[in-house]
Amino acid sequence: MALRGFPGIRSAALLLALLTSFPIAAHHSFAIFDRDVQITLTGTVKAFQWTNPHVFIQLMVKNAEGVDEEWSIEGASPNMLFRSGWTNQSFKPGDKVTIVANPLRDGKHGANFVFAQLPDGKTLGQLNSRAPG
């Protein structure tokens, strides 16, 4: 599962493995994602839904044939993210980003946000992202 260029990915995966021995705090919808798998989605932001109960990043990602597909990447409540340094401008239409996420088990184009690499090069997580400026 090595992902070059993303330091800490191995430790994140290890932590995840340790925590799945008993169903943890998981939010109600985590069961629909495969949290043992992480995929990398690189594309252009189409929309950022800064709403409860979960934020969504709509990301246009080119498939193997070079055709754009729309992915819906689900994050935590904006209330939590706001306290963690996010704003409703953390993702803007047109932003070119790379997002690491747990995919939907049913194979559809949806995933659970793990972290993102932003246009300015910074890494954005959910609980301990960079402090507000």
Partner: peptide
Amino acid sequence: EYVCEENNRNPVQEDGSTGFIGAQ
């Protein structure tokens, strides 16, 4: 403010499972 119904894309389905609206 936390309004759960604002944009709930994970509704509970009839069979009790959790949905994910908008993913194709």
